[in-house]
């Protein structure tokens, strides 16, 4: 990295005293920087192309191929071949061999998995936003032991999700501590709603800290003077919250919600380990993984659908809700 700096310095420095050659030199500087930038960026972009774009293109190609298997019409084993949109209609309209998929097959679970995924996403992100905001406000105050609290919230974040799943599976066991504490006798992972709430609670525990820290970072950018001025003007605590804190923290909040939403839409580890997707806790990701061993090509179609769903949600966030993650990341200059 040490070799590229003199170039820049040479291009920029001597131009300063004169007026005339300055623009020309600035252009040259721009060109030099552009060349350096492409050299530096190429390895990353190539690597990402290999690990992401190649598999995705591959998946899309696969999704238009028929899975090898027995043809119910002829009874012979067939080697696939082009399928058109068959794999997509299989999932979207739950069609198996021209009729609706029988209950219990993976094909019949698509819309359930879709609604489960969105249920988890909406409920966990909403809970995490409210709880995270509250935690951030507390952590932003100054009190003795504040750094201990800030350290403690990192503990759930650092624990691997697989371990979190096993931990809460144990907490929610029939003889487990949750039932004892609340005096209930619920088979948490044994029926639909308790299982869903068990997943929601575990996910909330695991990821609220991330949300809280992002919001806290946003809160810390609000200058104290703004609050002082509002106080002088007689604003109540609630007014200060709704008129100052919320609008000023909004950019950071929106980015945090965007990150968490996209993360929740691909939720896999928690329900997969806690319930194996039983009792209607199968998310889209779990359905894809279940399908892989039944047939690559329709799994590829399903993973493409999942990808498109996530992409659309991200698009809506960025386009209509003003979650400007890229802008936040590229804005130049220090704060």
């Amino acid at each position: 990295m040490s070799t590229k700096l003199p170039e820049r310095a040479k291009a920029g420095a001597p131009a300063k005293p004169h007026q005339m050659p300055r623009r020309e030199s600035a252009d040259r500087k721009q060109v030099t920087q552009g060349r350096w930038a492409s050299i530096l960026l190429v390895p990353t972009l190539i690597l990402l192309a290999v690990v992401i774009i190649y598999p995705v293109v591959n998946a899309i190609v696969m999704s238009f191929q028929r899975d090898a298997g027995l043809n119910p019409a002829t009874g012979f084993f067939e080697q696939g071949g082009p399928a058109g949109f068959e794999n997509y209609t299989h999932w979207l309209f739950q069609q198996c061999n021209g009729q609706s998929c029988p209950p219990g097959t993976l094909g019949s679970q698509f819309w359930n998995a879709m609604s489960t995924t969105f249920f988890f996403t909406v409920v966990t992100v909403a809970l995490e936003t409210v709880l995270g905001f509250w935690m951030a406000i507390i952590m932003a105050r100054s009190f003795r032991g504040r750094s201990a609290v800030r350290a403690a919230v990192l503990v759930p974040w650092a624990i691997p999700t697989a371990v979190t799943a096993k931990l809460w599976f144990f907490i929610f066991a029939f003889d487990g501590i949750a039932n004892k504490l609340f005096g209930t006798q619920i088979l948490w992972t044994g029926s639909e709603w308790p299982a869903k709430w068990a997943v929601v609670i575990s996910d909330t525990w695991k990821t609220t800290p991330f949300m809280a820290l992002l919001i806290l970072a946003g809160l810390q950018l609000i200058p104290d003077e703004v609050y002082e001025a509002a106080k002088v003007d007689g604003a109540t605590a609630w007014q200060r919250f709704t008129q100052i804190t919320l609008p000023l923290v909004r950019p950071a909040l929106m980015v945090a919600i965007l990150f968490r939403t996209l993360d929740a839409l691909r939720m896999f580890d928690l329900p997969y380990i806690m319930t194996q997707g039983a009792n209607n806790t199968t998310t889209l990701s779990i359905l894809v993984v279940d399908q892989i061993r039944e047939g690559f090509n329709s799994a590829a179609a399903l993973s493409t659908i999942t990808f498109i769903v996530i992409f659309l949600v991200a698009f809506i966030f960025v386009r209509f809700l003003g979650a400007n993650a890229v802008g936040a990341a590229t804005s130049s200059g220090r704060k």
Binding site: P55, A59, M62, V288, A314
Partner: peptide
């Protein structure tokens, strides 16, 4: 620059399942 950053950010949000099937 904006496009490159957008691509890299988008990549970080990419769902793992979309890779597993073709890579499998």
């Amino acid at each position: 620059k904006f496009a490159v950053m957008g691509f890299i950010l988008g990549a970080s949000m990419f769902p793992g399942v979309a890779l597993v099937t073709p890579l499998f």
